[in-house]
Design a protein around this nucleic acid. Structure first.
Length: 649
DNA sequence: GAGTTTGAAACT
DNA sequence: CAGTTTCAAACTC
């Protein structure tokens, strides 16, 4: 474990598990309980503090989540020690014990210190009556330091509101460690990381606002929702997988949440600012200035490679549970993979028009979202679920931990609009099978290592149709399979025949693609104009219609039109004059081309212009030319304001 | 596109 | 854990 530098703190609250291994173990513990409690304040309120070590912020409930170190903990004031220093990406869950009394506390807000000071972030722990889980997430290494009950370290007016005579209330000082830890944070220039409390040096700041009314709306049994919003002056590129979030619970003392100070500490190199528009351009708000929008906290789901959380609940002794994307648990919504930016970093979800939420906003509607609201998503087959609400593993989207998007499903609940239902469904699935969201096909280093984790149970397909999950994944059946009449084994002649057919088809497709590509490249290589010379070496008529000639012609026409308009001629007359001018221009071209070929060239040029402007063909007739011939002209000469004589090239 | 087949998931 | 039902995808016509 990497030790963080010491910082100016009087005391550190460490969260100890029972048995206490380490306040912040480097490896996730498998010893978990579903309702662990950590007593985290000097007045001994019961809270659950759970930590998890993961590069991406991913949370879950105490019951369904895994990889969270839980356990009955006690608040202990200790001096900084290696074990007390949270490594980066620590996530703190603070969850009131269900049987919390009124005197027990929970964190309701996190705020930054007075501006211009240390910029340390503070968490206020206030009374909580609710059983509602309260989540505190810190993407940055933090230490929890008990402050005085009077909130001396807090900004003016911030603490008083949360303290009542009959309320046990504790202030917790949350201060980020400096940037010397191994996380990808640029150290503050000139600062001594080991001595100076480093303010949250953030390249991209993403305040997370929690609307007051939403907090008021939180009811027991529901999950609080949050909103991730970008400060108007903040250039947000990516939202860190590490965020600091605090939710409030009903009955809690209200404390201002100063979102601008709630900063997300760096994150990914901003490679694509174009992703910014996906962020809701919402000003940071405080609790007092909450908006009516339904806020929600979006926390990235783990990238697939990271999504296996070790050390799970007792139900998952095997150790690995993949918590699916999009699940709302403990007040945290997991984003599906499709909402993650390249590199696994999350993309902020627009608060109101998220493509992830546009679908199935009404019941019994076909689930689809408009193209403009669709996030960049990897190709995926849309589902067609009709009865499962996309909340069963029948639904591929759901099973893959993705939100439905541009699907054809009916009455879809696999979206963030119905995240509560979705969370329950996910929990139900995990209850039935803790590995429900594991990939069915184990990923090995090579194809030979790929195998179906459960094996198929085919009876009639011979495992040679896509009904068979092994065959569909293009892997052989294994001894895990319980299929009957299996023909999906190495030496199977039927399989070989199919493979040959498939190979032949693949070759055919490749050949067709190659031929198409070649043809397209040849077409691109073709000259934009046909050959200018005939077989006899003569310059063909259309070779005189160069870009310059066309441009000159157009200018003549425009000039003619302008003149006609200036003279106040009626519309019909203007059109007539333009056509006449066009005829003169053509005549000039024709005469040039006509130098050697005469009428033959005239006909060919006529064909050219007829092809281009069929209706004007009539003007090629000399009887329609009001201005006679221009035998000397090589290029059109304008009678209007424009005059252009580029000559032929 | 409608109907059938199939096997995983869900349920009992 | 086994049998049955439900479900959506794959498949056929």
């Amino acid at each position: 474990m990497k030790k963080g530098p010491s910082i100016c703190m009087e005391k550190i609250i460490t969260v100890k598990r029972e048995p206490i291994d380490d306040a912040y173990p480097t490896s996730p513990s498998t010893k978990t309980t579903s309702t662990a409690v950590a007593t985290a304040t000097t007045t001994a309120p019961a809270q659950t503090l759970m930590t998890k070590t993961t590069p991406a912020a991913s949370l879950g409930t105490a019951t369904a989540t895994s990889g969270v170190v839980t356990g009955t903990a006690s608040a202990t004031a200790v001096t900084p020690s290696p074990g007390a220093v949270a490594p980066e990406h620590k996530i703190f869950y603070i969850q009131p014990k269900p049987e919390l009394s009124k005197t027990q506390c929970t964190v309701v807000s996190v705020m930054q210190g007075p501006s211009g000071t240390t910029s340390s972030t503070k968490a206020v722990v206030a009374n909580a009556h609710s059983k509602q889980p309260v989540v505190v997430i810190s993407g940055s290494p933090i230490k929890l330091t008990p402050l005085s009950r009077a909130g001396a370290a807090l900004g003016a007016g911030q603490a008083s509101s949360s303290v009542g005579n009959n309320i046990t209330c504790t202030l917790v000082h949350v201060q980020p460690l400096n940037a010397t830890s191994k996380q990808n944070i640029a150290p503050k220039a000139g600062a001594s990381p080991s001595k100076t409390p480093v303010p949250l040096q953030i390249q991209k700041l993403v305040p997370i606002s929690v609307a007051a009314n939403s907090l008021a709306k939180i009811q027991p049994g529901t999950t609080p929702q949050f909103t991730m919003a970008a400060a108007p002056t903040t250039s947000v590129r990516h939202i860190a997988p590490k965020v600091s979030i605090v939710s409030a619970v009903p009955g809690s003392q209200t404390v201002r949440l100063t979102t601008p100070s709630l900063q997300v500490r760096n994150i990914a190199p901003a490679e694509k600012p174009a992703q910014v528009p996906q962020l809701a351009p919402k000003p940071a708000v405080t609790l007092a200035s909450s908006v009516a929008q339904q806020p929600r906290l979006i926390v990235p789901a783990l990238p697939s490679s990271m999504s296996q959380i070790s050390g799970v609940t007792g139900a998952t002794a095997a150790g690995n549970v993949q918590f699916p994307h999009g699940v709302l648990s403990g007040g945290v919504v997991y984003l599906p993979q499709q909402a993650l930016a390249p590199g696994g970093f999350p993309i902020a979800v627009p608060m109101q028009t998220s493509a992830l939420t546009t679908s199935a906003q009404t019941s019994m509607t076909v689930n689809g979202s408009s193209a403009e609201s669709s996030p960049p998503s990897r190709p995926r087959k849309p589902c067609n679920c009709t009865k499962s609400q996309c909340l069963k593993l029948y639904c591929d989207c759901f099973a893959n931990g993705e939100f439905c998007n541009n699907c054809n499903c009916v009455n879809c609940s696999n979206n963030m609009e119905r995240e509560n239902e979705r969370s329950k469904a996910i929990k139900a699935c995990l209850d039935r099978n803790p590995l429900a969201f594991h990939p069915k096909i184990g990923k090995g280093r090579g194809d030979s290592d790929r195998r179906h984790n459960k094996g198929c149970h085919c009876k009639r397909s011979g495992c040679l149709k896509n009904y068979c999950e092994c065959y569909e994944a293009k892997i052989l059946c294994t001894n895990l399979c319980k299929c009957t009449g299996c023909k999906n084994f190495e030496e199977s002649p039927e399989r070989k025949t199919l493979m040959h057919l498939a190979d032949a088809a693949e070759v055919r497709v490749k050949q067709q693609n190659a031929a198409r590509t070649k043809l397209e490249s040849q077409i691109e290589d073709l000259p934009s104009r046909p050959t200018f010379l005939s077989n006899s070496g003569e310059r063909l008529p259309f070779s005189f219609v160069t870009d310059d000639v066309v441009q000159a012609t157009c200018q003549c026409l425009l000039a003619q039109a302008s003149n006609a308009e200036n003279e106040g001629k009626p519309q019909a007359m203007i059109e007539k004059m333009i056509l006449e001018e066009f005829g003169r221009c053509l005549l000039s071209i024709i005469h040039t081309a006509n130098g050697t070929k005469g009428k033959e060239a005239l006909l060919q040029v006529t064909c050219i212009f007829t092809h281009i402007r069929g209706p004007f063909n009539f003007i090629l007739s000399p009887s329609n030319w009001s201005h006679g011939n221009h035998p000397e002209a090589e290029v059109p000469e304008c009678r209007g304001v424009a005059s252009f004589n580029p000559g032929f090239h």
